[in-house]
């Protein structure tokens, strides 16, 4: 009997406590920048696509929901011809972001992706590409890679010597 009354009293007191429930969607919860939500493809500081079509995200994806096809422009710069994520399969584990060697694929704090039709959860490259660099600022893979893809000439990279003149006579 006493315990019942005590319970009623405690519940009564809660009427004067601060409310825990967030009134979503009118009120948004704070999500930290590293929160693993919707996947985006970012661009390098020059505004070009960062994705080089290396297939590592697709390979590491535990539910195999990423598929792409790499292609090249006339300078030899590799980029995805198509890049498709089936978000109806995605488990937002973030392994693709970890695997990405160019910081192109990033998970952002956005989870509002509800759809009435599963088909609408298939995102193509146009849906995934954003206009900024995302969480990683200032990185352009083609400036540190060895190949010449129209971004820097051979030997012009930060960590590169000039190309060897193979006909020089000095040892």
């Amino acid at each position: 009997m006493f315990s019942n009354l005590r319970s009623i009293w405690i519940v009564f007191l809660h009427m004067f406590h601060k409310r825990e429930t967030v009134l979503y969607p009118e009120e948004k919860a704070y999500l930290p920048p590293r929160w693993r939500g919707r996947i985006v493809l970012t661009r390098d500081p020059e505004g070009e696509e960062r994705c080089v079509g290396c297939y590592l995200c697709a390979a590491v994806c535990p539910v195999d929901c990423i598929s792409l096809q790499a292609t090249e422009d006339e300078h030899g710069r590799r980029y995805p011809e198509f890049f498709r994520i089936n978000f109806s399969r995605c488990i937002f584990c973030g392994l693709c972001e970890d695997a990405c060697p160019t910081d192109a694929i990033q998970l952002i704090p956005d989870f509002e992706m509800g759809e009435y039709h599963r088909q609408n959860l298939v995102y193509e490259k146009e849906d995934l590409l954003i206009d900024g660099q995302g969480k990683v600022q200032g990185y352009n893979f083609y400036k540190v890679a060895g190949i010449d893809a129209g971004v820097k000439a051979k030997g012009q990279g930060a960590n590169e010597d000039k190309p060897v003149d193979i006909k020089k006579l000095m040892p």
């Binding site: 195999d64 198509f82 089936n86 298939v122």
Partner: peptide
């Protein structure tokens, strides 16, 4: 082998 759940998703999810 990758992309099994995405490669045909443009046609049908």
């Amino acid at each position: 082998y990758s992309g099994r759940t995405a490669m045909h998703a443009n046609v049908n999810v």
